[in-house]
Nucleic acid binder design. Sequence first.
DNA 1: GCTTGATGAATCGTTGAACAATCCTCTAAT
DNA 2: ATTAGAGGATTGTTCAACGATTCATCAAGC
Lengths: 232, 232
Amino acid sequence: MTAMADWAARLSAARPVLDRASAAELVADVLRENVIDGSLPPGTRLSEETIGNLLGVSRNTLREAFRLLSHENLLVHELHRGVFVRKLAAADVADIYAMRRILETAGVRAVVTAPREAVEEVGRHVEEGRAAAENGDWAAVGTANMRFHRAITALLASPRVDETMARLLAELRLAFHVMGELRTFHEPYLGDNARIATLLSDGDHERAERELLAYFDIAEAQLLAAYAEHAG
Amino acid sequence: MTAMADWAARLSAARPVLDRASAAELVADVLRENVIDGSLPPGTRLSEETIGNLLGVSRNTLREAFRLLSHENLLVHELHRGVFVRKLAAADVADIYAMRRILETAGVRAVVTAPREAVEEVGRHVEEGRAAAENGDWAAVGTANMRFHRAITALLASPRVDETMARLLAELRLAFHVMGELRTFHEPYLGDNARIATLLSDGDHERAERELLAYFDIAEAQLLAAYAEHAG
DNA sequence: GCTTGATGAATCGTTGAACAATCCTCTAAT
DNA sequence: ATTAGAGGATTGTTCAACGATTCATCAAGC
C-alpha cells in the first residue's frame, strides 16, 4: 500500500509536465522570458500581428497568451489599444515591498513549525548566490536572491502564498531594469542573506525578522532612488 | 494647482469604468455571478457550445472569459476536457484560511497607521450585516461578512493585498455551498465582528488580533466539518 | 500659434467556419 | 467481467472577414 502511494504521488507530481502542452502557454513562456530578461523593455507595445507572425501562431492563441501574462502582471491590456510590457511605477514598487514585508515576515515566523528540509532550502540558495557571485554572474546572483526569498515564504507551506510570492517577484524584476549596475544592487545583500539563513536554522526568528525588515528598507529605498533618478 | 490635481485624480479614478466594455469581460462577469451564487454548482462542466449559444457569443470570446475566471481560481481548465466550476478540496479551504490569517492579522496590526475612514469602514460593514440579519437575509449577511474582512485588510492600504483578498474570498464562496443552513454559519459571527470592530476603533490591535484568530479557528473548523460530512 | 474637427490608415474586437487532436461512450469479443 | 476498438462529441487551433476604435495627419478657425 505504501509502495503504491509512493509512485502514485510521484506520478501525480509529474503530471503538470505532461499537461504542459497548450500552445498559448508555450507562447506565454517565450514572452515571459523575454520580458523578464529585458529583451522587451517596459512600455513596449506587443502587436498581435507582428508577434503572431514572429512566433508562427494565430492571433487567437496569441491573445490567450497575452491574457496569461496580463494576469501575471507582466503585461497590461488596454482595450482597443493592445498589450504593453508593464511599466512599474514607484508606487507599484512600494506596494510590492509592502506585500513582501507581510508575506516574508510571516514566513520567517513560521520557521518554528516548518520541516527541516524547508529551512535547509533557504540556506541552499544563499550558497547558490555566493557561487554565482564568484563567477561574476550578477544576473544569476539576482535569481538566487529571488529563490532565497521564495524559500522564506515557502516555510509557510501554502501553495497560494507560494504562487502570490512568485508573481510578486516576477513583477519586481520589471523594476530591476532601471538599475544600471546589477552588481551594486545585488552584491551587498549576499551577506545579509547568509546571516538571515543562519538565524533561521538557529530558530531565532525574532532577529531574523528584524534583519529581513532592515533589508527591505534598504533595498526598497535603493530601488526608489534609482526610479527618482531615472524617471525624474 | 491643487484644484486641478483634485479633479484630475477623480477623473483618472473613473477611467476603469469607461474601459469596461470587452465582451469577454462582460461574459466573465455573468459567469462569475452565477458561480458565486451557486447557480453553477462546483463540478459543473461548462460546454463551450452550450454556454456560447446561451450567451450569444462566439467560442473564441467565451474562451477568453474562461481564461479570466480560471485565473481567478473560480474555474479549472483541463486540457481537451473543458472547463469546470472549481471544486474546493478541504486542503484548499485550509490553505485559504492560512493565507487569510496572514493577511488579516497584518491588516489588524496596521490599524495604528490606517486613516480614520478606513477604520470606520470596518464598523460600517458590521452594521450592514446586523441589518441584513434583522431582515433574515442570510446571504446578505454573508456578503456583509466578506466586506467586513476585506475592510480589515484594506487597513493596509495596499492595492495588491486588496486584490489578493478579494480573490481569496471569492474562492471561499465556492466552499460555502457545502453548508446547508447559511444562518447557522453566518449568525454566530455577527457578535464577533462587532467586538473586533470596536477593538479596532479603540486601537487595541493585540486583542483584536486574538479575537480574529479565534474566529478563524472556529469558522475553518466548521467548514471542514461540513466538508468531512458532505464529501465523506 | 494653438486648438478644434475631419479624414484615412492601422489595429483591435469579435465572429464564424473549418480541420485536427483528444476524450468519452458504447459495442463487441475474449 | 474485463479489455479492445469504433464512432461520436468536444476541445484546440488556425484562418479569413468585418465592424469598431484608436491614432496620426492635416486642414480650418479663433
